[in-house]
Computed example of a mutant assay.
Amino acid sequence: MVNKIDFVVTWVNGHDSEWQNKKQHYLFTEDKKLNSDSRYRDWNIFKYWFRAVEEHAPWVNRVILITEGHLPDWLNVTYEKIFVVKHSDYIPEEWLPTFNSNVIELNIHRIEELSEHFVLFNDDMFINKSVVPEDFFENDLPKDVGVFSPQVPFRGGIASISLNNIEVINDYFSTYQILKLYGKKFFRLFYGKHLIKNLVVLPWDKVLGFFDHHLPIAYKKSTFKKLWYIEEDTLTKTSKSRFRNKDNVNHWLMRYWQLATGQFSPRTVKFGNYYDIFEECDSVIEEIKKPKYSLICINDGENSSEFESIKEKIIFAFEQRYPTKSQFEK
């Protein structure tokens, strides 16, 4: 059993005028689609993230909150389980300021206080039912889904970044090699219909991609250090990008590495679920009220006309589910 597991979560206050001005100063030459305002706006539901952690994962060692410098005004920074880290605390100065989540996440191994075993969240990823440490790590290995999946690029998406990750993986591994060594981890009945994907890729020696479930990911800090050791130029190139662009890699590279090396323990695909907050608002609210999944991601989209009305509905649902302040709050 793993003794210490940290949760790492990144957050930005998109309403901070100083941060907005700084962002606009650098944004004029960048890909606006990959860096739209919706990727930074605040739904005012972050406090429920902490309430859910306290209720469903009281065993967590601590929560490491990564922020540009601003903090939620309700955050209790004196609570022993909260550890606030600013970008400037661990990202090399020459890469700052950064508005690129890939840079922020790829460099987290530089946080000295971060434990070897941790789970990386975005602020739209919630624990939705009670979980135990073994849901994230088993026999010292991160729990994950071993499923291949061809990457499908589309305009405005991040498949190009995933493909960049796969380019690196194909320098070191092949589908045949992975399945020969770790096939038992990739062919599990609890992968359900996704098992078909592992059969479809068999004719190709090169890795076509991995299934990305858009949920919190269990990692080992040593995996990040390993990739930085062997792919320093690749990761440095991304870290120099102030904004996300199609030439980047992201932290999924570390996840793919864990999968390709068999350094994971298989977990059912039914452990979590991904929702589009605009297209599936009613489903999100129902999931918050009557949870079926232990982890959920409620992803923001480009819709702006319905933002305020849907935001109110989501806040109301979370307040009904978690009406009591956590120790993470003042």
Results as ranks from 00 to 15, higher is better:
His15Arg: 11
Arg110Ser: 05
Lys86Val: 01
Thr324Ser: 10
Phe154Gly: 09
Val84Gln: 06
Leu227Lys: 00
Ile314Trp: 01
Phe187Glu: 14
Gly209Ile: 01
Asn13His: 10
Ile166Ser: 09
Pro216Gln: 04
Lys81Tyr: 11
Pro153Gly: 03
Asn245Val: 05
Leu215Phe: 02
Pro58Cys: 04
Ser115Thr: 12
Phe187Ser: 13
Leu120Arg: 00
Leu208Glu: 14
Val8Leu: 01
Ser304Met: 05
Cys281Phe: 00
His109Asn: 07
Val103Leu: 01
Asn3Leu: 09
Lys22Ser: 14
Gln320Asp: 15
Val201Asp: 10
Tyr176Pro: 02
Ile296Ala: 03
Asp73Ala: 10
Phe118Cys: 02
Ser88Trp: 04
Glu80Val: 03
Tyr322His: 15
Asp123Asn: 10
Ile161Pro: 00
Pro291Thr: 15
Leu114Asp: 09
Asp140Met: 09
Thr236Ile: 12
Lys270Tyr: 11
Leu75Lys: 14
Val249His: 05
Asn76Met: 08
Gln177Gly: 14
Val85Thr: 09
Ser130Phe: 09
Leu295Ile: 03
Gln24Thr: 11
Arg188Ala: 12
Trp11Met: 02
Glu287Leu: 06
Ile45Asn: 07
Met254Arg: 00
Tyr48Val: 03
Ile166Ala: 07
Leu195Phe: 10
Glu312Ser: 14
Lys221Val: 06
Lys289Asp: 07
Thr223Ile: 06
Ala218Ser: 15
Cys297Ile: 00
Ser294Tyr: 12
Ser265Cys: 15
Thr238Asp: 01
Asp205Phe: 13
Phe328Cys: 04
Phe190Pro: 12
Phe121Glu: 01
Ile45Val: 15
Pro266Met: 13
Val269Ser: 03
Ile127Phe: 13
Phe211Gln: 08
Phe243Ile: 00
Leu235Trp: 08
Phe121Leu: 02
Glu112Tyr: 08
Asp212Leu: 07
Ile66Pro: 02
Arg41Cys: 13
Gly157Val: 01
Phe118Ala: 04
Gly209Arg: 01
Arg39Leu: 06
His70Arg: 06
Phe186Met: 07
Trp59Gln: 12
Glu167Cys: 09
Ile169Ala: 02
Glu312Leu: 12
Thr10Glu: 00
Val201Phe: 10
Lys220Glu: 13
Tyr293Gly: 08
Ala52Asn: 12
Pro291Ala: 15
Lys206Asn: 08
Asn198Asp: 06
Asn273Gln: 08
Val85Lys: 09
Ile314Asn: 02
Ser305Pro: 12
Tyr191Ser: 10
Tyr40Leu: 09
Tyr219Arg: 05
Val60Glu: 12
Gly146Val: 14
Lys129Tyr: 03
Arg51Gly: 04
Ser130Cys: 08
Pro150Thr: 05
Trp204Thr: 11
Leu75Cys: 13
Phe121Trp: 05
Phe271Gln: 08
Asn21Phe: 11
Cys297Met: 00
Pro203Lys: 05
Lys4His: 14
Phe154Val: 04
Gln24Ser: 13
Gly14Phe: 06
Glu30Met: 05
